[in-house]
């Protein structure tokens, strides 16, 4: 909420300096510098102004919505924002968002680290480059395509797997499966895992490649096996890299909209079983409720968007801090 107030204190933009004649005189270094500095600072300020406008706009609309809410914003299990006394809460959305993202992380991180290690230390050199390239390309597949694929290819093929999970782990209650369409938080988690896999892989691979060669060679010379080298010199070096990569992946999983909206069967209920269709996420709820929402309903959705926004901000910020702590390594192996 204090974003808006913070932006008000931003310094006013300096007058943009774009005198063509000054730039023409090549000998004078200082005018050129001044123009360049002005340009780059100017665009920084433009960005700041846009962002401040959005943040102010969002906070304003969200505040409008919250003041009229008759339910509890944090605990109500309902989304009746268009009704005349509006009643809505984000409990189900928060649960769904967090749970599906955690499922995605639990699946994606080990696999991504495996692939990253495979590319950096295991694959034959000739294979490693094209594989890394393919993974890069997959990071660019649009989420609508993942959504289409998830809804028409993945979900129909998961019924068998889910019945199996039900027979093996059904007694826990978490993996109980009623035989409905497999459009549950678990399916969303699996799809998100596949979507964030390339990002986590890319970042951790970069970190693994930066692991000091000397350490590895020393370990090898002492007779360590390849796994021991990785466990003792590569993984400790890359731990913070893996964490920040996971955070970046988490950030993407939290905010994913269209892919979740095509795959999930949204209901405003928290179900004990991950395999039961139902639940919802912030972004999905905004996308599917937005069209029919009244003006007030839109404000309510924006309020939920603001919460998502803050969560994503926290996650991204944490990832950044972890990366920043290791800044001394950047540039070393460019």
């Amino acid at each position: 909420m204090d974003i808006a107030t913070q932006t008000e204190t931003a310094p006013p933009p300096p007058p943009p300096a774009t005198t063509e004649q000054q730039r023409a005189s090549r000998g004078a270094t200082r005018p050129g510098d001044r123009i360049f500095l002005g340009l780059s600072r100017g665009s920084g300020i433009v960005l700041l102004v846009i962002m401040a406008a959005i943040a102010a706009f969002l906070t304003y609309r969200a505040a409008l919505a919250l003041s009229d809410n008759t339910g509890n914003f944090l605990t109500t299990f309902e989304w009746d924002a268009n009704a005349i006394p509006p009643k809505f809460g984000i409990a189900v959305l928060a649960f769904g968002t967090v749970v599906s993202s955690i499922i995605a992380l639990v699946i994606a991180v080990p696999v991504a680290v495996g692939i990253a290690l495979f590319i950096s230390h295991y694959a034959p050199r000739k294979l490693a480059v094209p594989i890394a390239y393919v993974i890069d390309l997959l990071a660019a597949v649009p989420s609508i395509v993942y959504g289409l694929w998830g809804a028409l290819v993945v979900a129909p093929n998961l019924t068998g797997f889910y019945s199996w999970l039900d027979t093996v782990l059904g007694w826990t209650g978490i993996f109980e499966y009623q035989g409905g369409a497999p459009r549950s938080l678990m399916t969303v988690g699996i799809l998100l895992a596949i979507m964030i896999l390339p990002i986590i892989t890319n970042v951790s691979r970069e970190v693994f490649l930066q692991a000091p060669k000397m350490h590895e060679e020393a370990a090898l010379a002492l007779g360590a096996t390849r796994w021991e080298v990785i466990r003792m010199s590569v993984l400790p070096f890359g731990r913070s890299g893996i964490i920040s990569a996971s955070m970046l992946g988490l950030g993407r999983a939290l905010g994913e909209t269209i892919a979740v909206a095509t795959v999930l069967s949204p209901t405003f209920l928290i179900s004990a079983s991950l395999l039961d269709p139902g639940g919802g996420t912030f972004a999905q709820n905004i996308a599917s409720k937005f069209n029919e929402a009244s003006e007030y309903g839109r404000d309510a959705l924006i309020a939920s968007g603001l919460v998502l926004f803050l969560i994503t901000l926290l996650v991204n910020g944490a990832a950044r801090m972890i990366i920043a702590r290791r800044k001394e390594y950047s540039g070393a192996n460019a």
Partner: peptide
């Protein structure tokens, strides 16, 4: 109503 499944 509570429960059931849904689609867009």
């Amino acid at each position: 109503a509570k429960g059931g499944q849904s689609a867009n």
